[in-house]
Computed example of a mutant assay.
Amino acid sequence: MADDDFRRWWGDHHVASRTRGNKILRHPIAGDLTLDWDALSCAGDPEQQLVVWTAEPGTPSHDALRLLASWTATADRSAANR
């Protein structure tokens, strides 16, 4: 806090933001998922972002996401048939 530049930068919140990366998430049923993410910013309002999570095709994480998606599709069809 003794550095004048640091105080100004901190006050201005000029912090580098990441727009992509990867992360390991633990799902209670599917287990550990290694996922890549990309954050897409809205040109009209950069404070809003859409974050897209994907898994590398052919990996256990990709297979687990497909399994979870199939459960959702089955539940959606069951609800539609009521």
Score class of each variant (00 low, 15 high):
56 E>H: 02
2 A>E: 09
32 D>H: 11
30 A>G: 01
3 D>C: 12
39 A>K: 04
61 S>Q: 01
23 K>N: 04
45 D>H: 11
1 M>Q: 08
59 T>W: 07
39 A>Y: 00
24 I>T: 15
61 S>H: 01
13 H>A: 13
69 A>I: 00
60 P>G: 10
78 S>F: 13
22 N>Q: 15
1 M>W: 07
47 E>Q: 12
56 E>K: 14
5 D>K: 13
8 R>G: 00
20 R>I: 02
17 S>F: 04
69 A>W: 08
56 E>N: 02
67 L>Q: 14
27 H>D: 08
27 H>M: 07
20 R>C: 04
13 H>I: 06
35 L>N: 03
14 H>A: 12
15 V>P: 00
26 R>T: 15
55 A>Q: 02
62 H>M: 03
32 D>Q: 11
31 G>T: 07
39 A>I: 01
40 L>I: 10
46 P>V: 12
37 W>H: 00
48 Q>P: 02
18 R>V: 09
60 P>D: 07
18 R>S: 14
62 H>L: 05
16 A>F: 09
58 G>N: 09
14 H>R: 15
27 H>E: 03
64 A>G: 03
20 R>P: 00
21 G>M: 11
53 W>R: 08
55 A>R: 01
51 V>D: 02
66 R>L: 15
26 R>A: 13
45 D>W: 09
25 L>Q: 03
68 L>M: 11
47 E>C: 05
65 L>Y: 00
34 T>Y: 10
74 T>W: 07
1 M>H: 07
27 H>N: 00
3 D>W: 06
66 R>V: 15
13 H>V: 11
62 H>P: 02
46 P>Q: 09
60 P>I: 05
28 P>N: 03
73 A>H: 07
23 K>C: 05
11 G>Q: 12
42 C>D: 15
80 A>I: 04
64 A>Y: 02
81 N>G: 07
24 I>W: 13
46 P>T: 12
79 A>L: 14
19 T>E: 11
8 R>S: 09
54 T>A: 14
4 D>H: 07
71 W>L: 14
80 A>T: 06
42 C>M: 09
45 D>V: 00
58 G>H: 01
62 H>S: 15
68 L>Q: 10
7 R>K: 13
41 S>D: 06
18 R>E: 15
55 A>Y: 01
35 L>I: 12
68 L>S: 10
22 N>V: 09
